[in-house]
Amino acid sequence: MGLVMAIIRRKRAPVALPGLGLSLGITLAWLSLIALIPLAALVIRAGGLGWQGWLDAVSGERVWLSLRLSFGASLIAALLDTFAGLLIAWVLCRYKVPGHAFWDVLVDLPFALPTAVAGIALTALWVPDGWLGRLIEPFGGKVAFAWPGVVVALTFIGLPFVVRTLQPVLQSAEKELEEAAESLGASPAQVAWRVVLPSLRPALLTGFALAFARAVGEYGSVIFICGNIPMQTEITPLLIVSRLEQYDYAGATALATIMLALSAVILALLQALHAGRRTALR
C-alpha cells in the first residue's frame, strides 16, 4: 500500500477519482430544493414589491425601533462575548483550572441547548423574584421584560463562538515569543498587550462577527425574556413573525430581505477574513 501510494505521488498518476457527477448532482439538487430556491423566492417576492413598496414596508417607527434594538443589543452582546470569551479561552488554555473538563464542556452548552429551553431558563433566572433578578432588583435593575434581557439572551448564545475561535489560536501560539519578551524585560501586562493580543486579533474579529451574526437573527431565546412589547422590546425577527401572523406577507418579506442581506454580508466578510480557510465553528 505504501509503495503504491509513493508511486502514485511520484508519477502523478492519470487516474481520477470517480463520482464527481453523482456527488455534485446530489449536492446541488438538495441544496437548491431546500435552501437556494426558497431563498431566491424571498428575494424575487421582495423585488415584486418595487422600490417604493419595499421602502414603505421597512420604514416607520416600529420597524426602526426594532432594528435599533436588534442591532444595538447584538452589538453589545457580541462585545461582551468578545471580552468574556477572551478571558475564558485564556484561562482554559493557559492555566491549570480545577475541573477543567467540566468548564470546557460548559462553554459549548449554548450551542447544544435548544433556544426555547435557553429562553425559558434565562427568563426564570432574571424575573424580579428569580435567582439573579432578585440580586439586581434592590438597585432598580430590570433585565427580564426590558432591553437588557435581550442582551442577556444574545450574550448567552454567542459566547461559544468566541471561545471556540480563540482556543486553537491560543493553543498553537508560540510560547517562545512570550518567553522571549519576558526575558527581554517586558512586564506581564506588556507581554499580554504587545505580544499576545496582536496575534489574537484576527480570531477575536472572527469570533465577534460570528457572535454578532448569530445574535442579529436569534429568535427563540429572546422572545421569552424580552416580553415582546411593541416599540420597546420587539426585535426584528419578532416583528417579522407578528407581521406574518397578521398575513402582512409583504411587510414580513421586506424585513426579511434586510436580515438576509446582513447574513450574506457577514458571511462574505468572514470568507474574506479567512481567505478560504475553514473555521471549526459549530
Binding site: L31, A213, V216, G217, Y219, P237, L238, S263
Partner: peptide, 21 residues
C-alpha cells in the same frame, strides 16, 4: 460559501421562505 448560508440565516427567515412558497 452557500453551504454555510442556512446556518447564518435567521431561523425566522428560514421559516418565512416556505410560507412565501
Amino acid at each position: 460559501a452557500l453551504l454555510d448560508l442556512p446556518l447564518s440565516v435567521s431561523p425566522v427567515v428560514a421559516g418565512l421562505v416556505f410560507v412565501l412558497l
